[in-house]
Write a protein that binds this DNA or RNA. Sequence first.
RNA 1: GGAGGGGUUCCCGAGUGGCCAAAGGGAGCAGAUUGUAAAUCUGCCGCGAAAGCUUCGGUGGUUCGAAUCCACCCCCCUCCA
Length: 423
Amino acid sequence: MNALLEDLKARGLVAQTTADEELHEHLSSGCQTLYCGFDPTADSLHIGSLVPLLTLKRFQDAGHKPLALVGGATGLIGDPSFKAAERKLNTDDVVENWVNKIRTQVSAFIEFGDKENSAEVVNNLDWISKMDAISFLRDVGKHFSVNAMIQKESVKQRIDREGAGISFTEFSYMLLQSYDYAALNKMNGCSLQIGGSDQWGNITGGIDLTRRMNQEKVFGLTLPLVTKADGTKFGKTESGTIWLDATKTSPYAFYQFWITTLDADVYKFLRYFTFLSVEEIEAIEAKDKEIKGRPEGQAILAREVTRIVHGEEGLASSERITEALFSGDLSALSESDLAQLAQDGLPTTEVVESEKSLVELLTSCELAKSNKMAREFIKNGAVSINGEKASDSEMVLQKSDALFGKYTVIKRGKRLFNLYIWK
RNA sequence: GGAGGGGUUCCCGAGUGGCCAAAGGGAGCAGAUUGUAAAUCUGCCGCGAAAGCUUCGGUGGUUCGAAUCCACCCCCCUCCA
């Protein structure tokens, strides 16, 4: 039995594996090379990629060599797996730009150097772009049966479902990803591919192709799709996707995302997203069960994950804001506390006028999408100014009323804040 | 290339000339309750203070009036070649 694999299973991180017993042996017989692909579909990865990224690190910590593959080539094609509709193609330079950003991002999660198990980042454009159409069709395509490909669950809905469809471009995606595996096996001796459970079809395709092209037996392991107990989609909030890039989702917003994790999910997420041991997590859970009232799991989860993604500083600033906004009296904050909040990344809006209506203040930032919504929020009693509930929808705020003649903190709903700085 | 079916507000999906800013569901948001949970209940859910304005793939047209009819175009699906 391999300890790493046992730990992954205990964490619920193993959805499927190929040749389970042999994989145990394989991982127990020294440093193995594994890879996981990340396709550039935006200028940043989001928390959906966190599980595979952390899993690469788990393998590295156990002595294996992780390769992070950035899909410079596959990103130009688009993975159809479990996607309801054909996707728009992005241009070369857009994808290239994204590749560079994601390469940097991915690199933060694994360790580089000159050790046997030091990580590497590879780009499949390096080998796929060298291949010509004839070789692709003869050397790769010949190994695939269309009959088998259309049976794959990952493209079924696109083939069976009335109104959907799949282009040859996207249908070919599986061949490219499969070829990646064979190529990495040949070049780097890579013998394990990991990925989300939606990648099962692509991974097994790669395993088959590697056997046929290189006569090598390689393995696959998929990670579970992260789901929430209430059935809603993981990783989205009102303000959209939770990105790993601090300029797209602030460390504070990131921290808040984890704080609001459902009780029913929090211990599972601790297993998935932190490096705390399974025993430690079980102890937290047991303790939370004893005390009634607010559990500690969410805070620990938020702290651990924010630290992993945004470092100690990002965590510290997130905690400062959270502390100030949620457990204190806003009017008790000092001028320097308020300045610090702005510094820490609390959403901030500058006000140049010397007076402005509450409705306008709300719509000038993310707090309200339209005047109508702003009035609705005020009417419902959802808005408070410096901790005081606002009830007059036609209210006008003066600069002179601001805290220290400069700051106004407006809250909408239970947990959305904006700091206004009067100039 | 031929024949047929389809593109509706975030998603699914109803709507075939006025009663349609457009049923229903989901998601989302807000209030009460609470723990910055869950469950439940209530309200909101195109813009506008209102008059009204903009929206049902695109562009034109018919009509007093169009998401609904016509023409052309774009995109998707199915079958045939």
